Computed example of a mutant assay.
Amino acid sequence: MYTVGQLSKLTGVSVRTLHYYEKMGLLQPDRNTGNQYRSYSENDILRLQKIAVLKHMHFKLSEIKIVLDKGEVAHNNVAVWSRALTQQMAFVKQQQEKLQAVEHLLYSTLYAMRASEQVNIDEMLGFIRELEQPPQGKELRQQYFSPEELELLPINDVSNPLAMEWADILRRVKGLLAEPPDSPAAQQLASSIIEYADKMFGGDEQLIQKYWDYITPQEDQSARVYGMTTDVMQYMDAIIRIYMGGEDPRP
């Protein structure tokens, strides 16, 4: 058992905060019938540990109380502590996945602005919609690609500077759509695309082709990857075929 002062010193949680947790019903230390001094048990420490984790994840105290009220009593039980920590790790992972999804949306929005050099209100509306109704794209990719291939895809790592570099190439493509595919500017662009694809996919031509097929929109479908519309992809096909002398390595 620990006094409030001892617990505060050992955990770094102030005495005032511990008192407030008690007032909120988050902690329920024993009280000495004579002097009303508080005594904190191992179960209180387990609850305090959960509070610390959930607070760090920006949960409200009222929400934390609901979580805690579903918990178990520790009584120095290794199984209970292990179960509690395992549940917390699963919960943290779930929150990480949600934050990664938000990070990907933020990155995608920056990518779209860089590729188009403008703020598109439709993109912002889509951003909000995807936060409220997450798309099924991840599940579709998992069906199409192996776990090893997914690790290599440009859409997998939003921190990869090469991913944002494609926005610059895409902007160049859109600016040249009216140019003949065999023009010097178009052929210089084809060279950049091939060089980029080689860097992004590590020279894996099979994966390049598979990814190209995956992002190619089906008839009457919108682009699967921002900006990769049918006309853009057809133009890229044309300039690359000419650059390669009739061959067709697609990025």
Rank of each mutant, 00 (worst) to 15 (best):
Q28A: 14
D213P: 05
G202E: 07
Q28I: 09
R241G: 07
P135E: 13
V119N: 05
N160V: 04
E63D: 15
V73R: 08
Q143N: 08
K174R: 12
Q206H: 09
P154D: 11
I208D: 04
Q221N: 11
F91R: 14
Q49L: 11
K210T: 01
L48C: 11
Q188N: 14
E130T: 04
E123F: 01
D198T: 12
Q95W: 04
I239V: 11
F145E: 05
D122N: 13
I215N: 06
M200G: 00
E22K: 01
Y107C: 04
L162N: 08
K70P: 01
P135W: 00
S39T: 07
L48K: 05
L10F: 10
K65F: 09
E130D: 14
N43H: 15
P184A: 07
S108M: 11
K23H: 11
M57V: 01
M1E: 13
Q36N: 15
Y243W: 12
D69E: 15
T109F: 03
E205T: 15
A90G: 12
S146D: 03
L140S: 08
E97L: 12
L54R: 01
R16I: 02
E179W: 05
Q143P: 00
I194E: 03
R224I: 10
Q49V: 02
L140I: 14
V158W: 09
I121D: 12
S8M: 06
Y226K: 06
N35P: 02
D157R: 09
T230M: 07
L177F: 06
N120Y: 00
L68R: 02
R171V: 10
I215Y: 13
A223F: 03
P161K: 09
M200A: 14
Y2C: 02
F59V: 02
E63G: 10
M1Y: 08
D198K: 06
L54W: 09
E149F: 07
Y37P: 06
V232I: 14
K199R: 15
V158R: 07
M124W: 10
F145A: 02
E130C: 02
D44K: 02
E97W: 04
T11D: 12
K70R: 14
I208C: 10
S82W: 07
V67W: 07
A79C: 03
L68F: 09
L99S: 10
Y37D: 10
S192K: 09
G245E: 04
D220R: 11
K199N: 11
K210E: 02
